[in-house]
């Protein structure tokens, strides 16, 4: 059943195809009950923290032209429940790459979570989120300075054994290449980019911000060119693999993101509009490749 033309190897992890639902847009995997998850190359699970979190009050969602803002705020059951129930339950039905997305409010929290996730045999890749814009005193603070991002990277690399560590980068920075290079130098095995862009909407009726957290992360089709640009910049400056993320909504977008330099491609907000998005994108990749004269997806990584 596996079409070798689509398969990629991401930091040593073999995947049937490069398509991965992005963290925060696919729950912990089993929430998606509309298709067999095994069509997916990998799944990046919802951001997980040391302690359980409810997240921010409602409203957490606001629409934008060609996208949305969210301030969910890392709702999750905490790392221990995540490892004890969510990951094993998913592994029972899913054979592809399971990517644990880890968030924190301190260096120690990142280290503790990554250490525990490292010990879990069902997890293939650890994605360290230093770029969540929706929690105070953490998250994005680590991803907006090269020094802090490098510190998190080297600290978690010390405790993670036998599986690659990807650092998920924020686009809300002056120079993403500088931060990407700092992570690479600190030992990161790969990079995921981009997380959401910080935004705001105001209700004309109440004259107040629409979101409970005032600001939120912008995602969706509108940010695709920003993501392509940043993936291109980072992939050409670094030698570690990149998972491209941001506004991907079609097989053509996957191909474009790979041409920019991504080895795997995450699909986020489109899952919210169309629950079958990832499945349909994967199914239409071969036809799109034929049309464009692409033999194998690995041939186009970074050709742009």
């Amino acid at each position: 059943m596996v079409n070798e033309r689509l398969s990629v190897t991401l930091a040593g992890v073999k995947m049937d195809n490069p398509v991965v639902p992005a963290s925060g847009t696919f729950g912990f995997g089993l929430e998606m009950d509309r298709y067999d998850l095994n069509v997916l190359g990998g799944i990046s699970l919802k951001g997980t923290t040391l302690e359980p979190r409810y997240g921010n009050p409602l409203p957490r969602i606001a629409e934008t032209p060609s996208g949305l803002l969210n301030c969910v705020g890392l709702q999750n059951p905490g790392i221990d429940a995540f490892l004890a129930t969510k990951v094993p339950a998913l592994r029972k039905v899913y054979g592809g790459a399971i990517i644990a997305n880890i968030s924190g409010f301190s260096l120690e929290e990142y280290v503790k979570c990554c250490e525990r996730a490292s010990a879990c045999g069902d997890i293939d890749i650890i994605e360290v989120n230093v770029s969540c814009p929706n929690v105070h005193g953490g998250g994005m603070a680590f991803g907006t300075s090269a020094k802090a991002a490098a510190e998190v990277t080297s600290a978690v690399k010390k405790v993670v054994k036998g599986k690659p560590v990807f650092i998920k980068l924020s686009p809300n920075v002056t120079d993403i290449v500088e931060i990407a290079k700092a992570c690479e130098d600190a030992g990161a095995d790969g990079l995921t980019l981009i997380n959401t862009l910080l935004g705001m909407r105001i209700s004309l009726a109440t004259r107040k911000p629409l979101l409970s957290n005032r600001t939120g992360g912008l995602s969706g089709r509108g940010i695709f060119p920003v993501a392509v640009r940043m993936v291109w910049q980072v992939a050409h400056a670094c030698s570690i693999p990149v998972m491209g993320c941001g506004g991907v909504a079609s097989a053509q977008d996957v191909i474009e993101m790979m041409m920019a330099g991504a080895t795997a491609v995450q699909v986020g907000s489109e899952n919210l509009r169309n629950p079958l998005a990832c499945k349909e994108i994967i199914e239409s990749l071969p036809e799109e490749m034929d049309r464009l004269g692409i033999g194998s997806l690995t041939d186009i990584i970074g050709v742009a």
């Binding site: 847009t25 729950g27 929430e31 409602l58 957490r60 969602i61 709702q75 899952n271 919210l272």
Partner: peptide
């Protein structure tokens, strides 16, 4: 009623705190 994202339970954009948890 809530402002929703996905409508299918995958995004957690409309979670309310209830007596039984989120």
């Amino acid at each position: 009623e809530a402002r929703m994202g996905c409508g299918t339970g995958i995004c957690y954009g409309c979670s309310i705190m209830t007596a039984k948890g989120a």
